[in-house]
């Protein structure tokens, strides 16, 4: 079997882009942004001696009187209405604790899930005892942010049939800032796989399910073996998303689809090689630029 081996020194740093944005106002912690007192203090700033200082390194963003500094990478900051992919880490009293890549663990209340029976009904004690049968530790779910508590932790809900437990598929973790906010984050791509681009940077790739199994809220799991063609499409999609994320390209349905189409001339495993990643991403970028 041929093995691809390369030396660490043969690696190239991706700094070849001679792109300088003069308008971007870069600051580092401790820098004075403005001495004018007429501005409002936003995220990433603090006030000292009547001066506005930056507290993180990044670009200054100004909306009317509000000044914020946006750092390159942070943990996920949840907002109401975001679609997230999350993992259950604890089953508690009438609630599940789930990990959403946020600063604190999020909660999913028993009262904010659709139980297998379907209709809205009162949650009985029976349901409380059965909680671990619905979702247990380690299960993955897709959900929507219902509210944000004062300490920044999130409350989720799955009261729609498109949310719920996730079955067979691949989970990918990317930076939350790379997921573009769209009207929909659930996509059935024509390449034979469905993808959920969670706002929290968790990406779920799964085979496309037919309508009737999809609308159970995911509580009835389909554990049938997935056909080899579908598995290959999913693996290819995974490598494409990974390549885009590594090049800090925004992730949304079109960019993922274009990357998939550009990658078809290579085998799936070749997509992990840096030079092929570079090429696929470059072709995707050109196609996106030609359109927009």
């Amino acid at each position: 079997m041929a093995v691809d081996v390369r030396l660490a020194c043969a690696r190239v740093d991706r700094k070849e882009l001679p792109f300088t944005n003069d308008q971007a106002h870069l600051v580092t912690p401790g820098d004075v942004i403005t001495t004018d007192t007429g501005f409002m203090r936003g995220h990433g700033t603090y006030m000292e001696d009547e001066k506005l200082h930056a507290s993180v390194s990044g670009t200054v963003e100004r909306v009317n009187k509000l000044i914020c500094v946006k750092p390159l990478k942070t943990r996920y900051n949840g907002e109401v209405g975001d679609v997230v992919v999350a993992r259950v880490i604890e089953v508690g009293q009438r609630r599940w604790k789930v990990d959403t890549n946020s600063r604190l663990d999020s909660v999913l209340m028993l009262s904010s899930v659709n139980l297998p029976g379907g209709e809205l009904r009162r949650r009985s004690e029976e349901d409380e005892r059965m909680m671990r049968d619905y979702l247990q530790e380690g299960d993955l779910i897709s959900a929507e942010v219902q509210s944000v508590f004062s300490d920044g932790s999130l409350s989720l809900h799955t009261r729609s049939l498109k949310y719920g437990k996730l079955g067979q598929g691949i989970l990918l973790k990317v930076s939350p800032s790379l997921v573009k906010r769209r009207k929909t984050h659930f996509h059935n791509l024509p390449c034979g796989a469905s993808i959920i681009l969670g706002n929290n940077g968790y990406v779920w790739i799964a085979p496309i399910l037919n309508e009737d199994t999809e609308n159970t809220g995911g509580f009835i799991q389909n554990l049938e073996p997935v056909a080899a063609v579908d598995r290959e499409a999913m693996a290819r999609l995974r490598n494409c998303v990974l390549a885009l994320a590594e090049h800090k390209m925004m992730l949304f349905d079109t960019s993922v689809l274009y990357a998939y189409e550009e990658s078809t001339k290579y085998t799936v495993k070749d997509l992990l090689k840096p030079e092929i990643m570079d090429e696929v991403v470059e072709l995707t970028r050109q196609r996106l630029e030609a359109e927009g």
Binding site: R14, K15, F19, T20, N21, T28, L72, K248, M249, M250
Partner: peptide
């Protein structure tokens, strides 16, 4: 570090 990372990000925003 900031300028090189932002350059990467900016060129991908379409």
């Amino acid at each position: 570090h900031l300028t090189s990372s932002i350059a990467l990000q900016d060129s991908s925003v379409t």
